[in-house]
Amino acid sequence: MHSKGGILNGWMIPPIDSLVARYVECYWFINTVKDDDGIAHPKLNPDTCGHLILTPKYQAYDYQSEAYSTQGKGSHWLFPYNKTYTMDHSEPMTLLGIKFHTGALYSLNLEPNTVEVNRIAQVDVEQLFQQFPPKPDSNLAAQLNVSLDSYLESSLASLLQVGQQDQTACAELLDQLLLPWVSTAKDDKHSELVRKAIALPPEVVISQMGQQLHCSQRTLERSFLRVTGMTLKQCQSINKLDNLLTHLSKHENNDINWSDIAQQFGFSDQPHLIRYLKNAIGNTPREYAKSREFVIDIYGNFE
């Protein structure tokens, strides 16, 4: 798929296996080329989901925020975050992402056991998946055209190559790679409560959630903080922002009626929307519309 902002190939697809889909929202792929007309430093809006980002070992990454800066090379964790990151995409790059559902990492036996928030960490992919080897009858190695003993060492390069050619085949391979891991997941009353709360319609306010889920608001708040590392209010605000930016990315500036947007997304008036965006991403609606520098605007939603 050819798209805007220097993207040569990009796609997004949900897992095929139902157990993997319980913990993974989607797989995504971006292959960029150098584009003098594109934005070299796109922004990431806050996200309650964690991403495991698979890249060539030599490929550099750079994330900047007002209070945080990290650089490295190769595959890495982008843990849930409640701030805006600016990335360096000035050079061509290939990224294959695994986007986990909100709260999923709490159940997936990561070390440390506490939920990570606002942190990017380099990851040894082979070492990570060595903890959860495929079943003996897995055909993953055959599909990657390597021996089972050496598939972990070779799988990353092979997966990235498959990702450029066939998104469905890549999703099937990722399912096989992840299935032994997600099979060890342990859900408890806190993760189940968070999953049910997230599934509620967005118009349900916090004060009504406990009643619908047959628990106290205090219990719900404590479970959210434990499972996601964020408060329920933070999670709601971040998800609203994501839905808003996704909606705006599909419209040209001259098609946007900010008063209608404010009403559609539950703001009392346009000034309330202006304050919300300024606080959430550092831009007023006018500034956002002028710059359009977020990933969703630059690379699209791969649809």
Score class of each variant (00 low, 15 high):
residue 34 K to T: 14
residue 278 K to A: 11
residue 119 R to G: 03
residue 161 Q to A: 14
residue 286 R to F: 07
residue 226 R to C: 11
residue 77 W to S: 11
residue 224 F to G: 01
residue 70 T to S: 10
residue 108 L to F: 06
residue 11 W to R: 03
residue 122 Q to I: 12
residue 18 S to N: 10
residue 284 T to E: 03
residue 251 H to N: 09
residue 231 T to E: 10
residue 242 D to E: 11
residue 30 I to P: 00
residue 236 Q to I: 08
residue 164 Q to D: 08
residue 1 M to Q: 15
residue 108 L to Y: 09
residue 87 M to N: 10
residue 187 D to M: 15
residue 104 A to I: 04
residue 189 K to D: 10
residue 27 Y to H: 04
residue 75 S to M: 10
residue 255 D to V: 07
residue 49 C to G: 03
residue 298 I to H: 00
residue 82 N to K: 09
residue 109 N to W: 09
residue 242 D to Y: 06
residue 174 L to F: 06
residue 107 S to V: 05
residue 208 Q to V: 05
residue 145 N to T: 13
residue 164 Q to F: 01
residue 295 V to S: 13
residue 232 L to I: 12
residue 279 N to M: 12
residue 46 P to Y: 00
residue 79 F to P: 02
residue 73 K to E: 15
residue 298 I to K: 04
residue 217 Q to V: 07
residue 167 Q to D: 13
residue 271 P to I: 05
residue 219 T to Q: 12
residue 129 F to I: 09
residue 217 Q to I: 07
residue 159 L to F: 10
residue 102 T to E: 03
residue 1 M to L: 14
residue 223 S to K: 01
residue 127 Q to I: 05
residue 124 D to F: 06
residue 92 P to S: 15
residue 256 I to C: 04
residue 240 K to V: 09
residue 142 A to Q: 12
residue 187 D to I: 07
residue 13 I to A: 10
residue 176 Q to K: 10
residue 245 L to Y: 00
residue 277 L to D: 02
residue 29 F to I: 05
residue 225 L to Q: 11
residue 5 G to P: 05
residue 235 C to L: 07
residue 223 S to E: 02
residue 90 S to D: 10
residue 171 A to P: 02
residue 61 Y to E: 07
residue 262 A to K: 01
residue 285 P to M: 03
residue 225 L to Y: 08
residue 245 L to D: 00
residue 227 V to H: 02
residue 199 A to F: 09
residue 238 I to A: 00
residue 240 K to Y: 03
residue 303 E to T: 09
residue 75 S to G: 14
residue 6 G to L: 10
residue 285 P to W: 02
residue 100 F to D: 00
residue 135 K to H: 13
residue 50 G to D: 04
residue 231 T to N: 11
residue 2 H to N: 15
residue 61 Y to T: 05
residue 215 C to M: 12
residue 224 F to H: 04
residue 45 N to M: 15
residue 96 L to D: 04
residue 85 Y to N: 05
residue 237 S to N: 15
residue 24 V to C: 05
residue 90 S to Y: 04
residue 265 F to H: 07
residue 59 Q to S: 10
residue 209 M to T: 03
residue 98 I to S: 02
residue 201 P to D: 11
residue 160 L to Y: 03
residue 172 E to Y: 11
residue 104 A to Q: 02
residue 132 F to D: 11
residue 136 P to Q: 06
residue 105 L to I: 07
residue 22 R to N: 07
residue 112 P to Y: 12
residue 21 A to N: 09
residue 84 T to G: 03
residue 120 I to H: 02
residue 219 T to D: 11
residue 238 I to K: 00
residue 87 M to P: 01
residue 269 D to V: 00
residue 196 K to N: 11
residue 67 A to Q: 14
residue 86 T to L: 07
residue 116 E to P: 08
residue 184 T to H: 08
residue 94 T to V: 15
residue 140 L to V: 08
residue 275 R to V: 09
residue 17 D to M: 07
residue 114 T to D: 09
residue 253 N to S: 15
residue 55 T to W: 02
residue 129 F to Y: 11
residue 180 P to I: 09
residue 14 P to N: 08
residue 153 E to R: 14
residue 168 T to P: 02
residue 89 H to E: 10
residue 235 C to E: 10
residue 9 N to F: 05
residue 146 V to T: 13
residue 31 N to P: 04
residue 182 V to D: 00
residue 187 D to P: 03
residue 150 S to D: 12
residue 293 E to W: 03
residue 210 G to S: 06
residue 74 G to E: 09
residue 59 Q to A: 10
residue 283 N to W: 10
residue 120 I to S: 04
residue 151 Y to L: 08
residue 256 I to A: 02
residue 154 S to Y: 13
residue 49 C to P: 00
